[in-house]
């Protein structure tokens, strides 16, 4: 009977204003508490965690990229060093080569100079020897001719004649 008392006021499809007012009030209170106390820490907490996860992921990626960069840099440095070493060696080799060539040139020049000097001195000696020889020959010839001709020949005229002859000879 009690039930029917209520049912008459609110059958299956009827809208009960007083009930709606109650629900609205409770809903506002409920939403108010949810907004003020319950949800902010949850929303913020989850967001914070997501951000921290995201930031740590980002940091990991950044670190990975940095490590990659460093290893690449290292490789570059090693390659650079190798290149430098190569160039230094090449330069050294070149220098040594140049030095050797220079020394060789110098040595050759010196040797040539020595040979030249030697040739010159030989020539001089030869000239000298030739002159001496000529003088000797002239003297000998004069003596011999003097011995041969004795008085016959004026010594002056003869000398001239013999000199000419020897000159002819030397020309030959």
């Amino acid at each position: 009977m009690m039930m029917s008392l209520f049912l008459a006021g609110s059958s299956l499809l009827s809208f009960n204003t007083g009930f709606a007012i109650w629900i609205l009030i409770s809903l506002i209170v409920f939403l108010g508490i949810m907004y003020k106390f319950a949800l902010p820490p949850i929303i913020k907490g989850i967001e914070e965690r997501e951000q921290s996860i995201q930031s740590s992921l980002d940091a990991a990626e950044k670190a990975l990229r940095e490590a990659e960069k460093i290893s690449k840099d290292n490789e570059e440095v090693v390659r650079e060093a190798e290149r430098t070493a190569q160039s230094i060696r090449k330069e050294a080799t070149k220098e040594v080569e140049e030095f050797r060539a220079e020394r060789m040139e110098k040595a050759k020049e010196e040797a040539e100079k020595l040979i030249e000097d030697a040739k010159k001195s030989i020539d001089q000696e030869k000239q000298k020897a030739l002159q001496e020889l000529r003088k000797e020959v002239t003297d000998l010839t004069i003596e011999a001719t003097t011995r041969l001709l004795q008085k016959n020949v004026d010594s002056e005229t003869n000398r001239k004649l013999i000199d000419e002859t020897i000159n002819d000879l030397s020309k030959n």
Binding site: M34, P41, I42, E48, S52
Partner: peptide, 22 residues
């Protein structure tokens, strides 16, 4: 409403303490 509130407040207190946040 009350059950939803209680569970939310309980979860909120956990998040405030750092469980789930850090």
């Amino acid at each position: 409403f009350i059950l939803a509130l209680l569970i939310s407040l309980w979860a909120a207190s956990r998040y405030r303490r750092g469980i789930g946040r850090t």
